[in-house]
Nucleic acid binder design. Structure first.
Lengths: 207, 207, 207, 207
DNA sequence: GATGAATGAGTGTTCATTCAT
DNA sequence: TATGAATGAACACTCATTCAT
């Protein structure tokens, strides 16, 4: 009549954090449920009280990241500043988010990979492609707005947005592949190259 | 001469091609040695006559790709054109290489992932980080050269190079994650954004 | 008196009934303690307040059935009618019992199976063989009595009793294996075949 | 080029025999794949080279038994003797088959049980009910034929057939549950009770 | 060289049972 | 007494690798 009380969500988070740590360290493929359990300080079977399966853990990582990502995007977009300013802010926010969560970020590789899956049967448990689609849409919208405001070259659209998004993700890749890579430290250059390019005599106002 | 050699190499290549195909399709983790053997039209055990282990196959994929990559870089760098022209050519070549080998390219995910590995013991069987380091070095060198020629903003160096390299890799990611993504079709925008940025009136007639 | 007792027994019965239902539906092997608990409307752990173990549940099913069975046998045997009449009554009672408790009956399979068990170590928790031994003994006794009364062929004994008992159990098997099988509906034929056989010109009085 | 040769069917049979032995001894539920492998003198994984799954092993037992059963039935039915003679022969053959394969026979329990399965999803992997349906059909046909020949009571049909079939299965149950039970030894009584019943003076010299 | 049967370590998942509340 | 979270032994199945032929 006095059932044991447990903060389910808290426990879920603990487990997930342990999983993120391990996934980041050695990758999803090399991480056993038992490792996660041990890292979370519980028994193997207990993981299943909170997550349906090993894959559900990866999905949860995706969700944690997607949530963070969404929050950052929304925060960056609100406000009345000029579009270009909001874009720059968005880029800096995303970079800061990624730089601030190295664990979550290094799992990205596995999230990208899990988005695939064919043959086997089961469809991917989450839609990574949609995330990038949305990023591009948002950035493209800002670019168009900025073009209207005269700040950006007319005609800039999704392709340009893809490159901007890509620049960040691509730096991320370099960081994931090489922890020495100074991802956080080159935020300025990411923004600058995206806005002004590398050529000399680039237009004034930006960055 | 060494007819056996020729034969042997041919067979190695066949197997590797089969492996690339499968790795691209379903990922390294989901590809069994037996699948590779079947796709190559040989028996499971025979794979081991040509490759030490399953992982050696992935390493070989890396090597095939690194080789192609090196060739492209070298080709793009030679010649006497202005540095900026060579850089643009390099970017276009790399993009063309990637776009032209979708299979190899989609394995990139697994190559990135295999570059990690800790705890387990064995060190990564190949050094992905080195590849990007080299890319950056080459691009940075071109940027500096171009700066001396007055084409590029003074001070551009490794960080800017990282962003340029990242832009391509980041678009690659979007393509790998979403086969619908028009990677090859946005080559121009990759180059343009990297060189001139998105701002209006940025850098003159270049690119 | 012992209100707790009453309560306790009532609860035990509820749980057991839930178990019988589930065992009948999907078999003992496929029935989890948690299923039983849920079906009984209590928590998993509470089952253990009433039954030592999962196996104890099966044993209790056996006991419930053995009890019913014993009651029926005793009821059928009492009285002063001719032995043959008592035998027929016994058969009909047992058939009615089984037909009237489809749930309990369909668990028979698991009770038979649990009677085995070797190697593992623990001896069977209840003695199914003894039940059939007793059935045979009772029936054989009736047959002998009936023989003395001139109703039954002289010499009929345990073997004949086994066949009579078997006829019922065998029909039961057909029913358990195939719910469409009209077990209850062929009570007459079970009795008739056992007493008069199938041959033409069988002696009068029976059935 | 000289692939190892193995008599696949022979190996399958060896494994199956080992399985039958163990299933008979301790039941399907208590028999681990590893036990079967050990009993067959091979490694765990090798079992899977010959059988898809643990359940496939049980299905194979069913098939081995169904095959034997079918052969016996066919053999008993052929010939030109009076129907009643063929029926008796059929009964004796089936009894002999069962008595001669104690292992196979004691697995019957698990075959009966596996014929059920609900809820879980997957349909039963084989159809035990169909076997008994066929038995009844065959016996009923013989009874009708015998009735036309004047040997059997007019009107005897499926219900009577069910009882006859049941008598054998029911004795089987008693044997399975109690290895001491003299199944083989009471063949005569099974036949006699089924044909002439137990009543005195019942049906004349038949059987 | 080529084969594919054999191996057995490795792992996700289940579930009876325990026990703190 | 009742609960249900926690445990961890158990087990089916997979697959890289080996090796007899």
């Amino acid at each position: 009549m006095a059932p044991k009380r447990v903060d389910r969500q808290a426990r879920r988070d603990e487990i997930l954090s342990a999983a993120v740590l391990l996934f980041a360290e050695r990758g999803y493929a090399a991480t056993r449920i038992e490792d996660v359990a041990a890292a979370a300080g519980i028994a193997k079977g207990s993981v299943y009280l909170y997550y349906e399966s090993r894959e559900a853990l990866l999905t949860a990582v995706f969700e944690r990241w997607a949530e963070r990502s969404r929050a950052v995007v929304e925060a960056a977009l609100s406000g009345e500043r000029p579009a270009m300013q909001r874009l720059e802010e968005l880029l800096r926010s995303v970079i800061a988010l990624l730089a601030g969560e190295p664990g979550l970020t290094r799992v990205m590789l596995d999230l990208w990979a899990a988005g695939r899956r064919s043959e086997g049967g089961a469809p991917p448990p989450f839609d990574m492609a949609a995330v990038y689609r949305e990023y591009r849409t948002v950035v493209a919208a800002l670019l168009r707005e900025a073009a209207e405001e005269g700040a950006v070259r007319a005609g800039a659209g999704e392709p340009e947005a893809a490159v901007v998004v890509g620049a960040i993700e691509g730096c991320l890749v370099q960081w994931v592949v090489d922890p020495e890579f100074p991802f956080a430290e080159i935020a300025d250059q990411m923004v600058e190259v995206c806005t002004r390019g590398v050529l000399r005599g680039a237009a004034g106002g930006a960055a």
